[in-house]
Nucleic acid binder design. Sequence first.
DNA 1: CGTTGTGTTGATATTAATCAACAAGTGTGG
DNA 2: CCACACTTGTTGATTAATATCAACACAACG
Lengths: 258, 258
Amino acid sequence: MILVRTAARPAPRPRAVVVEPGRAVEQCLHCDARKHSVCNAIPALDLDRLATTAVSMNVESGRAFIREGDPAEHFFNVTAGCAKLFKLLPDGRRQITGFAGVGTFLGLAVSATYAFSAEALEPMKVCRFSRAKLRALLDDFPAMEQRLLEVASNELVAAQEQMLLLGRKTARERIASFLIARAALPSNCLASEPELAQVITLPMTRADIADYLGLTIETVSRSLTRFKAEGLIEIPAAGEIAIRDSAALTRMAAGAGP
Amino acid sequence: MILVRTAARPAPRPRAVVVEPGRAVEQCLHCDARKHSVCNAIPALDLDRLATTAVSMNVESGRAFIREGDPAEHFFNVTAGCAKLFKLLPDGRRQITGFAGVGTFLGLAVSATYAFSAEALEPMKVCRFSRAKLRALLDDFPAMEQRLLEVASNELVAAQEQMLLLGRKTARERIASFLIARAALPSNCLASEPELAQVITLPMTRADIADYLGLTIETVSRSLTRFKAEGLIEIPAAGEIAIRDSAALTRMAAGAGP
DNA sequence: CGTTGTGTTGATATTAATCAACAAGTGTGG
DNA sequence: CCACACTTGTTGATTAATATCAACACAACG
């Protein structure tokens, strides 16, 4: 969970590592993640302290590593791969509330139980924190709490945007919004440029997209087919979509276009 | 923005007031709010410091005091009344993302502009903080940051629940969920008992309910009429609903019942 | 006493869901 | 290597839930 600039990990782990304030941190000393948004906020860390708090874990594809209603014992930071987060109704209806890519925090909630389930879409790596110990850690590192507040605020804004989509947008507008949002994802476009990606990778199935957008798989499929016919997108391969007319899609996503 | 147990405000305001840690705080020294969730988290406060940071404001009914897209200069805490929070599409479609009652924080976002608009449903009182000064205040009082993180986490859970509602619940289930959620509100049921209120007060119109639940006013009206015919509720007066069969409504809200 | 905003109810339209069939890809085991 | 099951995705026909359009009742208000 600690990031320092050193490329190689020190063989016998030092008992305490202090990263100088202001110095950029890139390589997690705890797990092998390259970039670790928790730690970027923490100028000085006690390695042993963190080592007892976090463990790096591999999660196999399809594995549900958080279950709604279970006691919320852990707190996760995604370091590789992507998960879907969802809530279920008793009869099986499902709402995917988001996809958790690299850097995402999971399980922030104050509640004693998880409010949603999380299932790996592909092989993942996560850093798992004990929530009990996390509280003590946050008390020592207010900067980390500040970072978490930022993250939570941003997620809240995204959640409100999704409510607008689910409550008021048409099927076509929802798909367009989804495509544009994916294209704007830092993992899909080059990190340096703020532009949209030309080709986006979708690690989720049509069923996942449908459950994320409050539609059925048939409606998702038909909308994509129609976008293709209209020259807005191309589908070069399964799990890939090429954006051909991002302006039109952006307009549609905003609730204006055709 | 400071709460101490003293009933009367000290006439010449002391230059610095320190509230002992662990001591309950009830009366805001800054504005005249009775309970102030910001301050409950802060064991020791500098009154002058806060006084330059927050001002108490009255907001008349119908006034939009936050506008989506405007520079986010302030941060609010509702101390009386209720507001609707919403986002608009260019053609006027509206999604109400929540209702902000007493104690609610508004404008937490990291972004430079507001992500939603807020309009008073009734005469309100809010405490307005300068966001620029808030940052410095939070740095001095990590406990306040912690409190905000809790609040944001809870709101995130509520937002996910609302996504489930908007994406996957039927019109009847949405209305049932709304009624049960309002009945569970501390302001509607007695604070001491965790039970549901028998009669709930709705400060919002049918149009607001519709825009909150992703429905039309007609569907809201028809659903309520049918609930009444089925003996689940009664409508003693405009803006009031009496819950007659909370068990059935709760089941329906969960996506199980009839 | 008209005007306006709000809420209800009815008739009809439309979007997206449901039901159904099938194609393509993947993995399994004989 | 090839049937076989199984998953995923596409497309068509039909249905159903909810939106839309329309009329009207009622209360608040100037």
